[in-house]
Amino acid sequence: MTTAVSFQHVSRHFGSVRAVDDVSLDIAEGEFFAMLGPSGSGKTTCLRLIAGFEQPTSGHIEIFGATAEGVPPYRRNVNTVFQDYALFPHMTVLANVGYGLMVKGVDKPKRDAKAEEALALVALSGFGGRRPSQLSGGQRQRVALARALVNQPKVLLLDEPLGALDLKLREQMQVELKTLQRNLGITFVFVTHDQGEALSMADRVAIFNEGKIVQVGTPEDIYERPQTRFVADFVGSSNVLSPAFTKASGGPERWASLRPEKITLLRGNAAAPKGQLKAAVTVKAVHYQGASTRLNTVTAEGHQVNVTAPSSFGRVADGETLTLHWSADAFHVMEGER
């Protein structure tokens, strides 16, 4: 498999701020790769390093085997969909989409035809004569996508492209982007701070924190087997359990994660089935969610555990005592934590 983008010990410092700190990374050709992290974690800087808007302070970047350092953005076969779309307001939609071909000297009939094709690809046929100001947010986003795709980039960079859209449109665009990526076979590098978006769309996800990549893997890897407390917290909904808790409940004395849906509930202070690990907890808060109910519970030692109660379990009251039990292999020990 060809490597599309390769980072080898790349750092980018702004003064004393280490925006990107010794990042090594390989993105395969045709992959849908998501960079996920809180704001200021370095993911956007990584994207800009690939686009050529930033140069690494140290380290080496290759795009399809060619050295990228010192190559200006306009000589890279990489295109970007910007967070604010950055459409040119003084041009029509067709001229916007044809811009990349225009500056390369493609004659007008040919570039208009190509631009129309690209607009059809994003379901905007017939919008060519309008101005960007006459389009809705979702339509502008598609124009930005068409404007990048018309250049047939080897890598398409997307900087939080769905951030400005409302929830329904965002979900629809997630499906469309994914389909588009499958059909075109272009490598997508997608930056987002929305874990749901990253996990649902990407083939692989890199989690960023403070300029470093803390974990790279498939969405299942990241979700099921977080390697650090940060990843477990950021991806969400998993219980992060301290070594003291795991030891007390009969597990190894290590930081571990435990998915709420893997925990079984019993009322009162009951005995767990043989071979199962258990903990006695008090219910602190009850969040009714329709098909299930989410409970925030706490052990006598003060460890917090979130569990999911199926609707068949019946009503649970605040302050009620429950017994939790789970199989020994439900614990996922976080290798990144000592």
Partner: peptide
Amino acid sequence: TSGSMIEASMDLGAD
């Protein structure tokens, strides 16, 4: 004017 417009232009191949 948005600063990313200039970057967008460079990104699309304009010097």
